[in-house]
Design a protein around this nucleic acid. Sequence first.
DNA 1: ACCTGAACACCGTTCAAGT
DNA 2: ACCTGAACACCGTTCAAGT
Lengths: 241, 241
Amino acid sequence: MAQRSAVTRRAPLSRDRVLRAAVTRADAAGIGSINMRGLAQELGVVPMALYKHVAGKDELLDGMVDLVIGEFEPPAAGPDWKSEVRRRVLSARRAVLRHPWARLAIESRTRRTPAVLGYMDSLAGAFLAGGFSAHLTHHVMHALGNRIWGFTPELFDAPPDADAPAPDPEARAAMAREFAERYPHILQIATAATDGDLSRVGDGCDEQFEFEFALDLLLDGFDRLRVAGWTPGSARSTGSA
Amino acid sequence: MAQRSAVTRRAPLSRDRVLRAAVTRADAAGIGSINMRGLAQELGVVPMALYKHVAGKDELLDGMVDLVIGEFEPPAAGPDWKSEVRRRVLSARRAVLRHPWARLAIESRTRRTPAVLGYMDSLAGAFLAGGFSAHLTHHVMHALGNRIWGFTPELFDAPPDADAPAPDPEARAAMAREFAERYPHILQIATAATDGDLSRVGDGCDEQFEFEFALDLLLDGFDRLRVAGWTPGSARSTGSA
DNA sequence: ACCTGAACACCGTTCAAGT
DNA sequence: ACCTGAACACCGTTCAAGT
């Protein structure tokens, strides 16, 4: 076809160009929009051409996550271990918030790429440099879990299904009444979280606050164990249970 | 066809029978084996027949998770809030360990079914009954996050890809040398976790220990905030940062 | 009124046939 | 030697045609 002349021909494909196009696409249309055919079309090539640069869809997703990790602030010799860990985790959080699809991608990926290992290694290094034993560092990394990527699961913040276009005040009130009866405790804490403005229930709470609340709670707990000289022989965590 | 006579005809389909068949299938062959066509074939019906009992694949997955939640131990008036929360979370953990696919299914589902809300409500109730304010209960539930379901992400415990059938001792040693150079801190904590037996690296550590370690660390932290009379106006968590 | 076969609109990936 | 069209083996879901 004369359709694609020399002048309209895109720059030659490369692994990096494929990955960046995938990230841009996922940013705009969600992780569900990532498929080899659509991505190829966007790049003006035939689907098979992508397989020259990524082994398959799995490796494509791994590579996309690696690009996000590349946006994390690099490690630094912080004044103390706690502010260094905190800074890096919150930096990871900012990157993940810029790419909302990354959350699910990180959770579902199992491959430990060099970028993933490099980030985990530098974080472990911050604990070790701060005086944590290798054993304790291992445990606290596990305790942080996916929080090292700067996100926490949504739990009850999922937006309410937008499948009921008609509010229908009466049915709404009946549903609210039934909810209050069946889930009184959830209602109670949701009321507190929204300062009594129940119409805001479902808008989600201040996720940034919740993330830092839990992160600081964990880091403070880690510090207590470090100071107490926790060893594998001691009780599981603080031993106060 | 005379293939399916009256005598071989299966019991009439029901939502419960569909969901139980799906759970059994997923237990045996993983979540990837769940598809409408295969499930229908297993039940001896045409795929479309399933749509009479579940709205679609999404609702099927929601229903499967609900069955797992149904295996959780029911709430009880525990001696104190901490042992009650601990008991219920570890009960959830046992159920999720019995159904390994449930972990990913819970993470990827966003729908809050009555079973999900009921479990979260009873857990919130345990905190409230233990003297936590509604505000603090909200925060500690978020801090637990997906840990309320009894699991924690794998982080670095993913089994090494079984794509290298030939160990090839020399290449293995070279890889180990490169790993030690690039990820010295990971090597250090992995060595500690396996008591120096590096051949066991990748076998995964004692996940049960790690789960309880983090759970107790969190619960102890929660208790400290409760005793200190934490209010929304106070510092984020312990305020010691 | 009920059930269902065939079809629709997709997937990821393979591979032999083209240049 | 390189590229790619067509095909393979799947999906979830729809819908009109059967009884």
